[in-house]
Design a binder for these strands. Structure first.
Lengths: 243, 243
DNA sequence: GAGTGGTCTAGACCACGAG
DNA sequence: TCGTGGTCTAGACCACTCA
């Protein structure tokens, strides 16, 4: 016997691709679809789960299932010391959510290389594209006596790394380390970014240290699954001939 | 009425964390567990799905459910022109799977900036850690008359970017662009890396171009979900005082 | 209150793995 | 052949949304 839910998923996928179901439009109810495809409701729901994992539809409890507007790919660009280019991501509107003083927990302590319990300033930013939340960023800086109002306008998206490092008062060489990983979203990210709990987010963890190795800033950036981070480097050939 | 499957999942998670279910050990059958937790089999299976998404268990059709050995975090390091450090990832054993000549399809063409249909050399590598497949890499190079045997020992994990660029014959400045994204695994990746179809993989797409902008190499690296990519840069302060 | 999706159920049957 | 997980089913009931 054939496994039926993949075929149902294929057919729904085809209908979306063919434009028979347009973005933001509501799908027929699950009862209707199960009759239409000649399968039971649980099987139809299994097919919808697949489409949800693929980001093609969005389920809304009590309202219905909807075709999702295909997301524009969102790109985080690390401009490694070259001041050209980017600046801000295309069409992304970043708003500051909150600025507050907190005490470092163990995770913060490891990130910033400070003692747990020391004072930090936390800035939270939300990036939106066409009114859709697209990125959630938290920036941590060792607390310097007050919440730096100027910092509230620097999201991880803005400006050049070198510029930031300079402005942050390093006054010399700085080291920027960026870690990129992928994980399931936290409940907070699910709510804020309007995600499903089962689709991964791309996480970029950036720490900036001054010449003495002291971490002057750490940024945590969460992007919905269909995102990418771009790192470009121009290399001079540092090698002599190696016979 | 309370939703039951999260509680079942919590309890199973606790048992694994507490060591009551050890790595590689088989779980009781789903029938047994459903009785033990006082829920129906579908509900128990729903809870197991959650644990599978979290990478805590592995389901094997016809055999049983097993506690997964916690994965060591795997790290891809981009050493941006600095020859220090890394070289190879910790404990990773890379073997060459295949080397063959192919014709570029549209995806290859876009990646390497060549015409579709032009000849490419494709090298495939599998990285293993303790006998467990941990990374799948495909490297593409414009075909140069034969399959370069030497290249077969350069996986994306080996060596320094600058060294590679030099060895690749650029003979001057080179540009390396690395794109990191996250997506669901292909069926091939599911089989080769022993993944589940629902857990994301981290994908690193690296292209190396010579001074003239010609792409001399493209590498596609797929890593299971609990992986990270690290990019470190040392910046000289390029700014004068900005009044 | 009507309509929607979410959860839970019991049971039948199929597909896979191993002895 | 047997035990396992995988699929499919029909139906009951709950939770949410909106008029």
């Amino acid at each position: 016997m054939a496994i039926r839910y993949p075929h149902v998923a294929d057919e729904l996928r085809r209908m979306i691709a063919a434009g028979e179901l347009i973005a933001d439009a509501q799908l027929p109810s699950e009862d209707e679809l199960s009759v239409k495809f000649g399968v039971g409701v649980p099987t139809l729901r299994r097919a919808l789960d697949v489409l949800q994992d693929e980001g093609l539809i969005e389920k809304q409890h009590g309202r219905g299932n909807f075709v999702r507007r295909p997301r524009q790919r969102i790109t985080y660009t690390s401009n490694r010391g070259r001041s050209e280019g980017s600046g801000n991501a295309s069409g992304l509107h970043v708003v500051s959510i909150s600025a507050r003083k907190i005490e470092a927990d163990d995770a913060h302590a490891a990130l910033l290389n400070v003692r747990a319990g020391s004072a930090l300033a936390e800035y939270v930013y939300l990036g939106e594209q066409n009114g859709v939340p697209r990125s959630l960023a938290r920036v941590y800086v060792p607390f310097q006596g007050d919440l730096d109002k100027a910092s509230m306008h620097w999201s991880p998206w803005d400006g050049d790394s070198a510029e930031r490092a300079g402005a942050l008062g390093a006054g010399g060489a700085a080291t920027v380390v960026e870690r990129v990983s992928s994980r399931l979203p936290t409940p907070n990210e699910v709510a804020t970014l309007r995600l499903t709990p089962r689709t991964s987010v791309l996480v970029i963890e950036r720490t900036t240290a001054d010449a003495s190795g002291r971490v002057v800033e750490a940024a945590l950036l969460a992007l919905p699954g269909d995102a990418e981070a771009v790192f470009a480097t121009e290399l001079l050939d540092q090698l002599g001939d190696e016979s």
